[in-house]
């Protein structure tokens, strides 16, 4: 039985340094953080403060120099490559500023990519991708190439792709960074409504004050440390 009060994500004295010796740069200087299931969190801070670095460590895309990231009490430094990739594949959804859709694939194919990686049958992944596309209101574009879509539509496909594996946590790094403010607002509304509906933990890295205020909690990072 999962304890609902137990944080889904936790860090302890998280340090991350890049480079060696004289070039050594400490991007994160001891981050302690606990995030509950279903919570929405905004990570804000100046450029270069370490927001993306923190997100990458939380998502297991990178390894900390010191300290630990725990997923429901399981330290990901202890996991092997197979376990970490499996964690990302089944429990995590990503939304990027640059969308990262594959231009030569159709909207449907882009959407079911995580399921294809997971080895889900063609029939099932198509069915699930259609449901996900329906939830972002893009079902009618299923067979279009990703290249043919507008920026807002692309980000909606990315959201559908992030949702398709029914993730516990969605990481969004500047999801509105490449969108005009009106489209950005729509994307945010969509993201929050889907997050509430599916009780997903949402971690957004952003510069956008309005977006940050919509989250349950704001974490401000400066110079590799949490200051608020």
């Amino acid at each position: 039985m999962k304890n609902p009060d137990q944080p889904i994500l936790k860090t302890a004295k998280l340090h991350k340094s890049y480079g060696k010796k004289t070039n050594r740069f400490e991007a994160l200087k001891g981050i302690d953080l606990a995030i509950s299931r279903g919570e929405s969190i905004a990570i804000i801070g100046k450029s270069g403060s370490g927001k993306s670095t923190l997100m990458h460590l939380l998502a297991g895309l990178d390894k900390p120099t010191n300290g630990n990231v725990y997923w429901s009490d399981q330290s990901i430094s202890r996991m092997n490559e197979k376990q970490i990739t499996n964690l990302r594949n089944t429990k995590v959804g990503f939304i990027f500023q640059q969308f990262f859709l594959q231009p030569t694939l159709t909207v449907l194919e882009n959407t079911y990519l995580p399921l294809k990686i997971a080895g889900i049958s063609s029939h099932n992944r198509k069915k699930l991708a259609k449901e996900a596309l329906k939830s972002v209101d893009l079902l009618d574009k299923s067979d279009n190439l990703a290249n043919d879509l507008s920026g807002g539509q692309r980000q909606r496909v990315a959201i559908a792709r992030a949702l398709i594996n029914n993730p516990e946590v969605i990481f969004a790094d500047e999801p509105t960074g490449n969108l005009d403010s009106e489209t950005g607002k729509q994307i945010i509304e969509l993201l929050f409504s889907l997050q509430k509906k599916n009780n997903i933990t949402l971690i957004i890295v952003t510069h956008d004050e309005d977006l940050a205020k919509k989250c349950d909690r704001i974490i401000k990072i400066s110079d590799g440390k949490i200051i608020k």
């Binding site: 998502a59 895309l61 490559e81 197979k82 990739t85 499996n86 964690l87 990302r88 594949n89 089944t90 995590v92 990503f94 990262f100 594959q102 990519l113 995580p114 990686i117 997971a118 792709r161």
Partner: peptide, 16 residues
Amino acid sequence: TQEIGLLKALGMRRKG
């Protein structure tokens, strides 16, 4: 390269 990065982020293993 970018596509490979995406596949890895989405949970494809090095082997894959």
